[in-house]
Design a protein around this nucleic acid. Sequence first.
DNA 1: AATAATATGCAACTTAGTTGCATTTAATTA
DNA 2: TAATTAAATGCAACTAAGTTGCATATTATT
Lengths: 140, 140
Amino acid sequence: MPNNFYEKAKELIRHTGYRVTHNRLRTLAILLAEQYALTHREIEERLNVKEHLDRVTLYRVLEWLSKNNLVHKIAGDDRVWRFRVNMELHSHQHAHFICTRCTKVICLNNFRIKSNPSLPLGYLFHEVELTVKGVCAECV
Amino acid sequence: MPNNFYEKAKELIRHTGYRVTHNRLRTLAILLAEQYALTHREIEERLNVKEHLDRVTLYRVLEWLSKNNLVHKIAGDDRVWRFRVNMELHSHQHAHFICTRCTKVICLNNFRIKSNPSLPLGYLFHEVELTVKGVCAECV
DNA sequence: AATAATATGCAACTTAGTTGCATTTAATTA
DNA sequence: TAATTAAATGCAACTAAGTTGCATATTATT
């Protein structure tokens, strides 16, 4: 497994100051290698079967990566979380594209979202999330 | 149960040309009475316990209402569908607000979303969904 | 090498939503 | 108004994502 992404993952996780575990490394390496957001299931499929990783542990690893701002979670219409690595350029105020055929999710980084929308009286703004639905190039 | 909302529901469902059933009427009446989007669970709680409605039937009723454009579905971060009645003024190109404390969803009708965003080559645009996250007035 | 806190694996559980099928009901026709 | 029939309903069983508790293993520190 050790490859460029694994080394990059090591750097990123070490930088958090918390424990550098093999499961965190290989999970993050898989996400670093992908251009789009992956589900728990898709990550499991990409894991080396020889080194077993428990379902529950993977959930906890993803939760940990998310809490430590190394990845972000995207809620899809299929009630499944998708995970995408956070790039430097990749602010939290960005848009997602969901393909309604294959349910794949990609991030639209070139998208501008004006924040601080006008909400009803007494409401507190936190963040805005924009999802574009359509059909991706492979599914057209 | 028969009330203003029930009569309004009757009018709307009759207008579709399909079968006018008691379960469709009372489900739609509940949604017509609410200012925000309800989950399957919340609708169940509002149903008259004396006239039992099966869980599965409610799922199918909601699906039917949605397909016939009487309500629309909103995907939340808690993997739960929420349903909101479609008003005339209430186009599909509108924004939703999700309270991160109580997970309540309201529709922001005064929100303008410019459609037809620029997507990667070969991608087909369908619709855009904007979700604002924050804390509602009751939870502040 | 001993330690202490944290991560992991396993089993069992929860919750939203779905499927198949027999029965009932709304709307149509005789 | 009764007979018909296609669609709606209820029930049981199922699926799939994600969670909890607890014993065991591992990381990083002393």
